[in-house]
């Protein structure tokens, strides 16, 4: 099991690196999807099957589809790849590299520091539901209101432009 975990972690890391390094936007997105799937497997191995399933359904299966959808419509060809190549020179790696190094140090410190009982505990769907509709009920409701606001906003933007068109001369 531990071997599987580290192997999956390696896949996630390599794919994530490819996302950043990739020149072609669609290929980079594909690597991002691989990263998300690997993360989902990590959740599963850590005893959270419900979170793993949601990770695939929501992130890999819905949000990323929309991103691929939009980038596909833009239809960036070889010109965009050339531009990316020009932008991704060595100098642009310095600051992100530094930040990643700091994160790595932090991670190393956490791993070496005495652990406070890192036991794996399975979390099933019912447990997630009880938490969401128990202590976090208010936050869930607030999030749903936020989504409703977004929905109303989207509807406002795409509503039929009857009134607006009357003002301009229609050819």
């Amino acid at each position: 099991m531990t071997g599987l975990f580290y192997f999956t972690m390696l896949i996630a890391l390599l794919a994530a690196l490819q996302v950043v390094r990739g020149l072609n936007a669609v290929h980079a997105l594909l690597h991002l999807i691989v990263t998300l799937l690997a993360l989902s497997l990590l959740f599963f191995l850590l005893g959270a099957p419900f979170a793993a399933a949601l990770q695939v359904i929501v992130y890999a299966g819905a949000i990323m589809v929309l991103m691929v959808f939009v980038i596909m419509m833009l239809n960036q060809g070889d010109a965009a790849v050339e531009q990316e190549r020009a932008w991704l020179d060595v100098a642009s790696w310095r600051v992100p590299g530094l930040l990643c190094g700091l994160l790595l140090l932090e991670l190393g410190y956490l791993l070496l520091a005495p652990a406070d009982g890192g036991r794996v505990r399975a979390v099933d769907a019912a447990a997630v539901g009880r938490t969401l509709f128990g202590p976090y009920l208010l936050l869930v409701e607030l999030a749903s209101m936020l989504l409703l606001a977004a929905l109303v906003g989207a509807w406002h933007l795409v509503r039929p432009l009857k009134n607006r068109r009357e003002g301009t001369s229609d050819d």
């Binding site: 399933a53 949601l54 359904i57 890999a60 299966g61 769907a125």
Partner: peptide
């Protein structure tokens, strides 16, 4: 999570 697994695969 069988049913969710199906939904994940279909998505």
């Amino acid at each position: 999570i069988g049913l969710l697994f199906f939904l994940a695969m279909s998505s």
